[in-house]
Simulated assay, not measured.
Amino acid sequence: MRKVYARRRLSILATLTGLIASAALFNSPSASAALPTPVSGATARSYLSQLTVAAENRTGYERSKFPTWITISGTCNTREWILKRDGSNVTTNSSCYPTSGSWYSPYDGATWSSPSDVDIDHLVPLAEAWDSGASKWTTAHRQAFANDVTRPQLLAVTDNVNQSKGDQDPATWMPSRTAYRCTYVRAWVQVKYYYDLSVDPAEKSALQGYLANC
């Protein structure tokens, strides 16, 4: 295997250890923050060219094999941390549950004032990750993936939009807001590259098409 993948695996393992063992050390996010900026279109195209192309395999998948949500900071779990990061004027109670604020969903352009109307989307869905290589990971590795607040992998969006997306990849689902699609595919490729996940032929073709315009 190429040395770059070996180095990346070492980096992943170090990140996993820090994320799981020292999650409480994360600083609280500001209310004006958003999805970490993905790599550029040119970098995403380069990353995509290096991803393994392989058929997907759903055998043995269970969502419980990707534990969510873990404590990220103080009393805030991953969902609450992302709600604070992605919202505007968010206030929380002592348990870190949002008591006020608003959330703009970049997938569909809707704004919500109740956290119950907002889901935290795994940009690369958990089942998709399983199909693409996560079935071989340890539970700790899958937990880190499912709670990754460092990569552009978690995003607060309209709940029914997230539910309609399900476990689909860009070959069959994209945000209805065309203005967000370049960000979406750049983030998708960055996450797959970082975690050394494969793409299937239709997925790669769709990504190539969208990235051509980024």
Rank of each mutant, 00 (worst) to 15 (best):
R8S: 08
A146K: 03
D121S: 03
R85M: 06
V161N: 01
C214G: 07
S46F: 12
S114R: 15
G87A: 10
T158V: 09
M1F: 13
S102A: 12
A6I: 14
P106E: 02
Y184A: 05
A212M: 07
N162H: 06
T138F: 05
A212N: 12
A110I: 03
F26Y: 14
D117A: 15
V199F: 05
Q208G: 09
N160L: 12
A212C: 05
A146M: 09
A171I: 02
L35P: 00
P125A: 10
G166K: 09
L35Y: 02
F145W: 04
A34Y: 04
N93Q: 12
R45N: 07
G133V: 02
T59E: 12
G166Q: 09
C214P: 08
L19P: 00
V199P: 03
V199A: 10
S198R: 08
L48A: 09
M174D: 01
V161A: 10
G87L: 08
P175F: 00
D167F: 09
P152M: 06
R63Q: 11
Q153C: 02
V53F: 07
A144C: 10
G74T: 11
C76G: 05
S102V: 06
G74V: 11
D196Y: 03
D159K: 15
T138Q: 09
E128V: 03
P98D: 04
V39R: 02
E56R: 04
R7W: 07
V149R: 01
Q143R: 15
T158E: 07
C182R: 09
Q50A: 12
C214I: 08
Y180G: 03
S116G: 15
S95L: 13
H141V: 03
L13G: 04
R79L: 11
T68L: 13
T139P: 01
Q168A: 15
G209K: 12
Q153A: 09
N213K: 15
A14W: 12
W137Q: 07
L155S: 00
T150N: 05
A44R: 03
T183I: 07
D167H: 13
D121W: 04
S114A: 14
A134W: 05
A42I: 11
P201G: 12
W137F: 13
R45C: 05
A14T: 14
K3S: 14
G41I: 12
W188H: 01
N57S: 13
I72N: 01
R177M: 06
L154F: 01
A42K: 14
S46I: 04
P175Q: 02
L13H: 08
L154N: 00
N160G: 06
S49F: 11
A110W: 00
M174P: 00
V90E: 02
S105L: 10
K3P: 10
S135W: 03
Y97P: 01
R63V: 08
S88C: 14
V53W: 06
Y210A: 15
I120Q: 00
W173Y: 14
V124C: 11
S102N: 08
T99K: 10
T71H: 04
S46T: 13
K3W: 14
D196N: 11
P106M: 07
N57F: 03
T178Q: 13
P106I: 09
E128S: 14
I70F: 09
T59S: 15
T92F: 01
T138D: 02
R85A: 02
V149C: 04
Y104P: 03
D86A: 10
Y180K: 05
T138G: 05
A33L: 08
T158H: 13
